[in-house]
Design a protein around this nucleic acid. Structure first.
Length: 159
DNA sequence: GCCAACGTTGGC
DNA sequence: GCCAACGTTGGC
């Protein structure tokens, strides 16, 4: 089993919205970055776990845990002219963008803010989220980093 | 194939 | 709202 981190803007779709879905499942659509796509399409498996990271908000950080609920399949929004994720270059017989469905697992008891992650330069060495200028919206998390971040969950502010 | 221009991301 | 970093586009 592998671990992941997936970013979302909570104003658009956050952990609360995922929990509120009827089956607590949602397609993770709109990813338009090739590396992020490749992670979903080629390396994710059903049952993998992912942190939900909230970006572009008052307190960026990790807020919840999701489970990968489906294998990757073509993102329907690429073919939808009315979608803001529409891609005129994508054709059904040759899809360009893929997604997975995610299922709500739980909220973190206490969110782990980005600032707290940044303070852990030693233990989180190599974590892609903390790489300068990193904007990847889907990235792998090593088992060691996953466990360490979960250990931060209950600790509140690290300051 | 280079690279400048452009659009987007996302912390602050 | 600012702006730095990054990915993509398109002219040449």
């Amino acid at each position: 089993m592998a671990y992941w981190l997936m970013k979302s803007e909570p104003e658009a779709f956050g952990i609360d919205a995922l929990k509120a879905r009827p089956r607590q499942i949602e397609p993770w659509d709109g990813v338009r970055n090739y590396l992020a796509r490749n992670y979903m399409r080629d390396r994710m498996n059903v049952g993998d776990l992912a942190f939900m990271y909230h970006s572009n908000c008052e307190e960026p950080g990790i807020y919840g845990i999701m489970e990968i609920a489906t294998p990757a399949y073509p993102d329907p929004s690429q073919f939808d002219r009315k979608s803001k994720h529409y891609d005129a270059a994508a054709r059904p017989e040759e899809p360009r963008w893929y997604l997975v469905d995610v299922r709500y697992k739980r909220h973190l008891a206490r969110p782990v803010p980005l600032a707290n992650l940044r303070a852990q330069t030693e233990r989180l060495k190599g974590f892609k989220l903390l790489a300068p200028g990193s904007r990847l919206s889907v990235m792998p998390v090593s088992p060691e980093h996953w466990e360490f971040i979960l250990a931060l969950e209950g600790t509140g502010s690290m300051r």
